[in-house]
Simulated assay, not measured.
Amino acid sequence: MNHTANAVRAGLARGWIELKQTATNGQDIFGNLLTPVILLIVMLSMRGDTLAGFPLSQAVFALPGVIGMNIMISGLMDIAGRLAVEREDGTLLRAKALPSGMVGYMVGKVVTVSGSALVVAAAIIVPGAFLFDGLRLDAGAWLGLLGILVLGLLATMPLGAIAGSFLTNPRAVGALMLPIAGLAAISGIFAPITLFPEWLQWIGQVFPMYWLGLGVRSALLPDAAVAIEIGESWRQLETVAVLGVWAVIGLVVAPVVLRRMARRESGAAVAQRRHKAMQRIT
């Protein structure tokens, strides 16, 4: 009997069930749609603004970057948050007790988080296509968008698993928001990175968020928009290379970190975390 294959099948089934539950739970629906609605309102306020020498509005420039930013937030914070919560409530310990249980557990999380991330991306781009003029939405654009979203999730979800392995409780997930907000500020999400000092441009290009934004812009914006990018190029090969490197690093490091975390899980550890959680509530 192939325990790993069975675990993968169970993980796929579990992830699909969790995804369907998310789609029918009012609280989850509200949580998934709140951020896209807020961002669309922000971009609507920018619709009349233009960038010097740029043929489209600032809102049209920002929309692809926002999609890329949300992919990173989903891949990093969602995975990390789920790991932290399910370590505390004992779900991870139960998964560990099964043959290849951690494999099935992580496959399920990948399915759930990927599905939710794609729903959030759709919740931004579909209304955005009606609200803002200038987006390129032909078959090639959709194919390019799907490709960069999948690559972006591969690059960010392992990082989320690594971060979640070190979080001591679910409330610590909020600490990840500060560096993500800092990255958004220097990664050319709402304004072209070429407007920043060169040293800041180099820092922004180290991390996946800039390349996610660039990749989505290359898929959705017209060819003339490339004039405002670094080197007046979409740098598609570089985008694939950088995100690919992040994906490889994450996929190599994450299993090691997750195995080490799983070895530390025990009934006593779960009971101690629950006791601390109850003390915080009372």
Rank of each mutant, 00 (worst) to 15 (best):
R82E: 15
R82W: 11
R82Y: 14
L83Q: 15
L83T: 12
L83C: 11
A84F: 02
A84Q: 05
A84H: 03
V85C: 07
V85G: 11
E86V: 01
E86Q: 05
E88N: 06
E88Y: 04
E88Q: 13
E88I: 00
E88M: 06
D89K: 04
D89Y: 03
D89N: 08
D89V: 08
G90N: 04
T91Y: 04
T91S: 03
L92T: 08
L92H: 05
L92F: 10
L93Q: 11
L93Y: 08
L93N: 00
L93S: 09
L93A: 09
R94Q: 12
A95M: 07
A95W: 09
A95K: 00
A95D: 07
K96N: 06
K96H: 01
K96L: 04
K96S: 06
A97F: 01
A97E: 09
A97N: 07
P99C: 10
P99A: 11
P99W: 11
P99S: 11
P99L: 10
P99Q: 13
G101C: 10
M102H: 03
M102A: 05
M102D: 08
G104I: 01
M106D: 06
M106K: 06
M106R: 10
V107M: 13
V107P: 04
V107W: 08
G108D: 04
G108E: 09
G108L: 09
G108F: 01
K109C: 09
V111N: 06
V111P: 15
T112D: 14
V113I: 15
V113E: 09
V113G: 13
V113T: 15
S114A: 15
